[in-house]
Computed example of a mutant assay.
Amino acid sequence: MRVIRFADETSLPVLAALTDDNRIYALPQRDLMELVREAEELGVSPLALIEKEIAEGAAPVGVPLESLTLLTPLDAPEVWAAGVTYERSRDARNYEATGGKLDVATFYDKVYDAERPEIFFKSTAARTVGPGQDVCLRSDSSWQIPEPELGLVIGRNGNIVGYTAGNDMSCRDIEGENPLYLPQAKMWRRSCSIGPAVRLAETVADPYRFQIACRIYRNGELAVEGTASTGQLKRRFDELVSFLRRDNDIFDGTVLLTGTCIVPPNDFTLQDGDRIEIEISDIGVLSNTARKLVP
C-alpha cells in the first residue's frame, strides 16, 4: 500500500491510498502523519486503518494516476541526508576532493569506515518540491548532478513509517573544493524533491531489496542511466536513524535520505531543461526538470 497526495479541482491537497493494482481512494485525513497518529490512537497500524476506511466506503478516485497533479506525499518539516553510505559514493567524493587521484586516501575513506555516519541537513518543506515540479540548478556551480536516494519517513518516536524516493541535488565542484562548503553544495532553493508516494513500512518485507534507477533525458533523448540496490548499502537504516535522533529533536514526518549509489560520469553536469527520473521499485517514478536559477 502506498500513500499519495494530489491537488483537487480547487488546488487543495487530497490524501489518498494507492493500492498495488493502482486503484486510488481519497482518505479523510489531511496528511500522512495525521493518518499515522490516528492509527496510533486507535491501536491499529496505518495499513489497517486505510483498509478499514476503504471497506467503509472511502471515495474512489475516478481518474488514472497519470491524470492527477501529484504533490509531495507529505510536507516533511525537515529533510536530512546521509552521505558516503555506498562504496560508489565514497569513490565519487574522493574523485572530487583529489582532482581525480583515486589512489589518495581522504576523509571520505575515514567516514565510510567510521562508526559515526555522515548526516547533514538537506531541506525544509518550503525548499522541497514534488513530482513534476522543477528542481533548480545553482547559479555559482558548473558541475551539478542529481543523487537518487531512498528516503525514510520517520515518526515522532523515531519509527520508520514508510519509504519514498528522493533527489538530493548536489554541486560536485563546490563540495570538492572544500568540505566546509558542504551546506552550499547541498542546500539551496528547490534543491530537493521527494515522491511520488510513500510505501508504508509495514508492507515492505525487506527494505534492502529496493531497486533504484536514475535516468536523465536531454532534448528528449536518454543521456545518463544507472541502477543500484539498497542491498549495496554499507549502513543499516536503524543505524542512520539512531545517529540522526541522538541528542536531536526529530519532528513528526521528518525524511532521512539514505545516500546514493548512482553517480553520473565525471564529465557530466546537469543543464537547463534536463529531465530527471528516479524510479524505486514498489514506490514509483519521481520526475523533475532542472532549471537554471537566476542569481
Rank of each mutant, 00 (worst) to 15 (best):
G166W: 01
G166H: 00
G166Y: 00
M169A: 14
S170G: 06
I174Q: 03
E175P: 08
G176F: 04
G176N: 05
G176P: 02
E177P: 00
E177Y: 11
E177L: 15
N178W: 15
L180H: 08
Y181D: 12
L182F: 10
P183I: 01
P183Y: 07
A185C: 05
K186R: 13
M187I: 15
M187Y: 09
M187N: 03
W188I: 01
R189D: 15
R190K: 10
S191N: 07
C192H: 02
C192E: 06
I194F: 04
G195Y: 06
P196E: 09
P196S: 14
A197K: 05
R199N: 09
R199D: 08
L200G: 00
L200Y: 02
A201H: 07
E202S: 05
E202G: 03
T203R: 08
T203D: 14
T203I: 02
T203G: 07
V204G: 10
Y208L: 15
R209G: 11
R209D: 13
F210N: 01
F210T: 02
Q211D: 14
Q211P: 08
I212Q: 02
I212E: 01
C214K: 10
C214E: 14
C214W: 05
C214P: 00
R215E: 12
I216L: 03
Y217C: 11
R218L: 09
R218T: 01
R218W: 05
L222R: 06
L222T: 02
V224F: 09
E225Q: 14
G226Y: 10
T227F: 15
A228M: 04
G231H: 04
Q232V: 08
L233C: 11
R235S: 07
D238V: 00
E239L: 15
L240C: 02
L240E: 02
S242L: 13
F243R: 02
L244P: 00
R246G: 06
R246Q: 12
D247R: 13
D247C: 08
D247S: 12
N248G: 03
V255Q: 03
L257E: 10
L257R: 04
T258P: 00
T258S: 08
G259P: 01
C261H: 15
C261V: 00
I262D: 03
I262F: 05
V263R: 08
V263T: 14
P265R: 02
P265L: 07
P265D: 03
N266D: 11
T269D: 12
T269E: 14
D274H: 05
R275L: 14
